[in-house]
Write a protein that binds this DNA or RNA. Structure first.
Length: 608
RNA sequence: GGGGACGUAGCUCAAUUGGUUAGAGUACCGGACUGUCGAUCCGGUGGUUGCGGGUUCGAGUCCCGUCGUCCUCGCCA
């Protein structure tokens, strides 16, 4: 029986006890049907929620029979009357808050099947256990699930909140090109062949970095954009080849101004989505201190387990790995893990951790346990205890160790020691359940080094990017010919970290030509190369550029945090698999010889 | 490019040292059922064990190759 589906009176999430007695017209999908022959229940689902339909005594016989034919995911429209379910029949999920419509039901008088559906390849509900590949192949069905829909409603709210916030602060949303010039620095580019220019290619932008600086030269003063970025690198759970950035740039500012503006934006988002007020200002930590204390430039500060430099005391031991590390200019650092009762850090667990560390390149992981002797004095036992000898007491004192603690040591070059202990710290935090849930620990990491030595390429390279301004106080180092000190130059770069995840970062840019020239020189980029790669920016920077700086947030990661999603794929509507393919469309795919010929392209099969 | 886990019914999984006709739950189909709500009960259909090769009297199981998915290191200015 045809029904005017275009005149829905309500959605499937809004009917309550107050609507009892009203005649309503609903449309949606059959989420579930329970057939009792003389009475049929259907859970009708749309993006707003779920409402129970009842086909029973008040339903015309022919409509009841039609209802018994209904199957999952059919699209239907019904007319009926809102009724209380009756005492004892109210949904248990109404009382838990899971099903706000659970007190009422719609007693159906008329039904129209708008379209039928074969049985779906997997259960369309938040209970589904289907693997991701099958879900991605039928992503349009996967996206019917309430949990995923919630993620995208949050994503929308985040974007809307950000646009409103920046609009209110005088920012202009401006677009930048997707077909642009390849920049060999940084990540691999996705290339797009030019039909009009045989043998030449556009590149999809890794970020709108250069263009937003041009906007500053143009005088737009405050630019913002929610923009897609592309990087042809290997994927991870938190990394997609195309991802979305909230990108902004401001003129006549210093780092403080950009960070304050960014804090306000993030605070607005957390308030809008979670009704959570971020304590501000967000704490700051220098890069140096972050590495010293946590071994990583994006520490999870929800728990302690900080790293201790024990080089001085380690040097007094006869333990060969310690001595070798120190003689080679390295350090010995330690991490102390409390394990009252010794229940968690068993021999097996410890061996597992050692193996795990070995997996990321660590040579070994000496440790020892702290116990008390007969006199109640602290001493070390097992592991490398005997190698610590007489140094043990001062070591335990320096580490404020307590009975039951396990102490882990890592000797070696500073950078590797940091890397391995940072990993160990995170794992210990999980194992010992030291990471409080439901806590949001924001952190600015500032004063990044401007340059780092690239051992493979045997040259200095930018930590952030070549347009990042050095600290005014470190300009002298930059212009010094003593290249051994270039690693000490601090930059005006900043990263925002949340619970150990990097949400975004930015910097104040160089706006003085001679500083930019010097940075290129230090990076080993000569004038010709600079002109070839970034000529248009350098030209622009000749014409009265304002001092400027900005920042970019990974929008997907922010939404991931807000939704609690385990993977970026759960907050991107049509994501790629880990090998960069799309099971839904089959992309990437072969193209015809004709298409290739038109683009003057010949492909070379990969060699075995 | 390296390391690891996995691939068996539409879906999620099981199958003893290599041993009879590869099972279960769910979905699906049929039946019963007027207060269910991840309905229940009864019955039934459903398999190229990812693909290719090898070892063996015999392979889901062992070996080689290959494809795919996920995690991870490298990589991601």
């Amino acid at each position: 029986m045809p029904l005017p589906y275009h005149q829905r009176t309500h959605n499937c999430g809004e009917l309550r006890a107050q609507h009892i007695g009203q005649q309503v017209l609903l449309a949606g999908w059959v989420a579930n049907h329970r057939d009792h022959k003389g009475m049929v229940f259907v859970d009708l689902r749309d993006r707003y929620g779920m409402t129970q339909l009842r086909f029973g005594d008040e339903t015309p016989r022919v409509v009841l029979e039609e209802a018994r034919r209904l199957r999952s995911e059919w699209c239907i429209c019904v007319r009926g009357t809102v009724a209380h379910r009756g005492p004892g029949n109210v949904s248990p999920r109404f009382f838990t808050g899971e099903l706000p419509t659970g007190e009422i039901e719609v007693v159906v008088q008329e039904l129209e099947v708008l379209s039928e559906s074969p049985p779906p390849p997997f259960d369309i509900s938040d209970y589904t256990t289907a693997h991701e590949d099958i879900r991605l192949e039928h992503r349009y069905l996967d996206l019917r699930r309430p949990g995923l829909q919630r993620n995208f409603l949050i994503r929308h709210r985040v974007a809307k909140t950000l646009r409103d916030y920046f609009d209110a602060h005088g920012f202009v949303e401006l677009e930048t090109p997707f077909l642009t010039k390849s920049t060999p620095e940084g990540a691999r580019d996705f290339l797009v062949p030019s039909r009009l220019h045989p043998g030449k290619f556009f590149a999809l932008p890794q970020s709108p970095q250069l263009f937003k600086q041009l906007f500053m030269v143009s005088g737009f003063d405050r630019y913002v954009q929610i923009v897609r970025c592309f990087r042809d690198e290997d994927l991870r759970a938190d990394r997609q080849p195309e991802f979305t950035q909230l990108d902004l740039e401001m003129s006549f500012v210093q780092a403080e101004n950009v960070m304050a503006m960014a804090e306000g934006a993030i605070a607005a988002v957390f308030a809008a989505v979670l009704n959570y007020e971020i304590p501000r200002p967000i704490p700051r930590l220098s890069y140096r201190e972050a590495l010293d204390r946590y071994g990583i430039d994006r520490p999870d500060t929800r728990f302690g387990l900080e790293l201790h430099d024990v080089s001085a005391l380690a040097g007094q031991t006869e333990f060969a790995p310690f001595r070798q590390a120190l003689e080679g200019g390295g350090v010995v650092k330690a991490i102390v893990a409390p394990d009252p009762g010794g229940k968690v850090l068993t021999r097996k667990t410890i061996d597992g951790l050692v193996e795990e560390l070995r997996g990321i390149g660590a040579p070994g992981l000496p440790y020892t346990k702290v116990v008390t002797d007969e006199q109640g004095q602290l001493k070390v036992e097992t592991g490398i205890a005997k190698h610590l000898g007489s140094v043990a007491p001062s070591l335990l004192d320096a580490l404020s160790a307590r009975p039951g603690d396990v102490v882990w040591f890592m000797p070696g070059p500073y950078a590797s020691v940091c890397k391995y202990l940072a990993h160990l710290r995170q794992r210990l935090g999980q194992l010992l359940q030291l990471i409080p849930q439901g806590q949001w620990n924001f952190l600015w990491v500032i004063d990044f080094p401007l340059l780092e030595w690239d051992e493979q390429e045997r040259r200095w390279s930018s930590v952030h990017h070549p347009f990042t301004a050095p600290h005014d106080a470190d300009l002298e180092l930059l212009f010094s010919d003593d290249s051994s000190r270039w690693g000490q130059i601090r930059s005006k770069a900043y990263d925002l970290v949340l619970n150990g995840i990097e949400l975004g970062g930015g910097s104040i840019r160089i706006h003085r030509a001679e500083v930019q020239r010097r940075v290129f020189h230090v990076l080993g980029i000569n004038d010709d190369e600079a002109q070839q790669k970034f000529g248009f920016l350098l030209q622009a920077l000749r014409y009265g550029p304002p001092p400027h700086g900005g920042l970019a947030f990974g929008l997907d990661r922010i939404v991931m945090m807000l939704t609690g999603a385990a993977s970026l794929r759960d907050v991107i509507a049509f994501p790629k698999t880990q090998r960069g393919t799309c099971p839904l469309t089959g992309a990437p795919s072969s193209v015809t010889e004709k298409q290739l010929a038109e683009l003057f392209i010949r492909t070379i099969p990969p060699s075995k």
